[in-house]
């Protein structure tokens, strides 16, 4: 946005330098990973690259353990997101619509898992699940992920509810719609983009989660854990880089679109006032 420059003074060169330095520090390592997916040298990071090859993409495709991990991660993320969408929406509706004893406490407890260090959530879940003698499985991973996925959906939907004109629900009932019809035709369209944004965010969170997964998984290996275990195998490094690149794309895109969607609906709602 070049027009912003005219708003005020130009930033001093020191500040500009610091800003660029910060951005580079954050993003150059990611670019390095992209770069070394193409290296023919499989054990060391030599620069400049001794050559360029695409063979690691092919190798990655052939790895059955990688595919199992990817499938598991996608499944867990999908199921955790669905659970989060349902529970998060119901919780947001309850906190928004009714006054009940302990409402503030419920609201606080719901948001807690995202503030709590993953290691605490992980240990707590592991102890609980272990002492209840529930075998660690695919489902325990889903439950673990749902604890923090619910939060993002809850926050998104609650914010949307608070912006929505409350009299719309009354108007719908007044015009003869029962509770189900009111949800279907009035409430759902109002919160649809919040659900989409919250869902994408939840999916991305679940997809690259390591800590809680380590504590709640049994023998299963999700993709992030697979990558983590690859660190001990220097010969596989380029393959790991290829996978890391795909993980980045898979998580980046939902977050990017989630932001677009919420920004857009905020614009239109602001414009109607």
């Amino acid at each position: 946005m070049p027009s912003n420059v005219s708003y005020g003074q130009k930033a001093s060169w020191g500040l500009t330098l610091a800003a660029w330095g910060g951005l580079l520090f954050l993003h150059v390592p990611i670019l390095i990973i992209f770069l070394y997916t193409l290296t023919p040298d499989e054990t060391t990071y030599t620069f400049p690259l001794p050559g360029i090859t695409f063979k690691w993409f092919g190798v990655a495709l052939q790895r059955a353990d990688l595919w199992r991990a990817l499938t598991l991660s996608l499944q867990v993320a999908a199921v955790a997101t669905i659970v989060a969408l349902v529970l998060g929406t119901l919780a947001a509706a309850a906190v928004y619509r009714s006054q009940f004893f302990g409402r503030e406490a419920v609201s606080f407890l719901l948001v807690l898992p995202i503030a709590l260090p993953g290691i605490v959530t992980g240990i707590a879940l592991r102890t609980t699940i272990g002492s209840l003698e529930i075998p660690f499985s695919y489902w325990t991973i889903v439950v673990g992920h749902a604890t923090f996925c619910v939060v993002v959906v809850y926050n998104n939907v609650l914010a949307r509810f608070r912006r929505m004109q409350g009299s719309q629900i009354e108007a719908s009932m007044d015009l003869g719609a029962n509770s189900f019809q009111t949800f279907r035709y009035v409430i759902f369209p109002n919160i649809a983009t919040a659900l989409l944004a919250g869902g994408m965010l939840a999916f991305a969170l679940s997809f690259d989660e390591v800590i809680v997964t380590t504590f709640t998984a049994g023998q299963q290996t999700t993709l992030p854990i697979w990558i983590f275990s690859q660190l001990t195998r220097p010969r596989d490094r380029p393959v790991t880089n290829v996978v890391a690149m795909f993980v980045m794309l898979i998580t980046f895109l939902p977050i990017f679109f989630a932001q677009k969607i919420t920004a857009q609906s905020a614009d239109t709602e602001g414009g109607s006032k």
Binding site: Q165, S167, Q168, E170, A171, S172, D174, L175, Y185, V186, P189, N190, E269, S272
Partner: peptide, 11 residues
């Protein structure tokens, strides 16, 4: 049926 103060139209 009701006409609401803020109209309550479905946006």
């Amino acid at each position: 049926n009701t006409v609401f103060q803020d109209y309550a139209l479905f946006p």
